[in-house]
Amino acid sequence: MLQRILGTRAQRMAEPLPPRGVRITAYAVLFLLGAAVSLCGAFVQALWAPLGVLLAFGGTGGLFYGGLRLTGTKLGAGIPLAGWFAVLLVMMAPRPEGDFVLAAGLTSYLYLFAGAVAGVVCATLPTRSGPAFGVPPGDRQRAVRDVRP
């Protein structure tokens, strides 16, 4: 069933990349979505423990994989991961009053670890863009051929 929803690897690799302008706009939106998911997940994982951790992890994993599929590049998973992590860094820092959002606890550590692993796994999945970040394979070969004397 999952293969029917996500498609086979051959089907995913055969999909065309979105135009460059669409990808750049998607990167900006994905960064903001990563920040928003991070903020929401930090509160959800503590509010409804232990089910909240699963909900927060599902949101982060879904965003990272969705960014990968939307853009067709590894950057599509890396950009929301950067936004997610940037907001978490701010929320982990203690305030002058002694308050902080992410307390030292099992659910907080599980959310941090599982979210980071999900982002790295999604960023290392095979993509339609080849090894270069966001450069389609044909364009990369053409660029290398044009540079050589």
Rank of each mutant, 00 (worst) to 15 (best):
T8D: 08
V135I: 14
R128L: 04
L51W: 15
R4P: 05
T25F: 11
V121T: 08
W48I: 10
L68G: 12
P126Y: 04
F31M: 13
G58M: 14
I79Y: 09
A104E: 15
L89P: 00
Y27F: 13
L55G: 08
A14T: 00
G98V: 04
A143N: 00
Q45D: 07
Y111F: 15
C40M: 13
A118F: 14
P136W: 00
L106D: 13
L88M: 10
L68E: 09
V144P: 00
Y65F: 13
L88H: 10
A132Q: 08
R145K: 07
A118H: 03
P94H: 09
A46H: 14
A82F: 13
A116M: 15
A49N: 06
W48E: 03
A10T: 09
P96D: 10
M91G: 05
G119E: 04
T73P: 06
G105P: 06
A118W: 07
V87H: 05
A123D: 02
A114S: 13
G7N: 06
V90Q: 11
A104Y: 09
R20K: 14
Y27Q: 04
P137Y: 02
G130A: 01
A93E: 14
L106K: 12
A118K: 06
T8N: 06
L75Y: 03
L63H: 06
L54D: 03
L54F: 14
G58L: 15
R128A: 04
M1Q: 13
V101H: 11
G72M: 04
G134N: 09
L112I: 10
R20A: 15
A114D: 02
T71V: 01
I5W: 15
A132P: 01
P50L: 09
L75K: 04
R69M: 01
A35G: 10
P96K: 09
R128P: 06
A10V: 06
Y65N: 01
R12C: 02
G78M: 15
G76A: 01
A26R: 08
R148M: 07
F133S: 11
G76N: 05
S129W: 03
F133H: 09
L112S: 04
S129H: 06
P16E: 00
G119Q: 07
R20E: 12
V147S: 12
T60H: 12
L17V: 08
A132W: 12
A36V: 13
A103E: 14
C122E: 07
A132E: 11
L75I: 07
W48A: 15
A35S: 02
A56G: 03
P149F: 04
A123E: 04
R148K: 10
V87Q: 09
G62A: 06
W48D: 01
R148F: 02
F43S: 05
R142Y: 02
E97Q: 09
T107Q: 15
P137M: 00
G130F: 05
F57H: 12
V147E: 14
L70G: 12
E15K: 15
I24A: 15
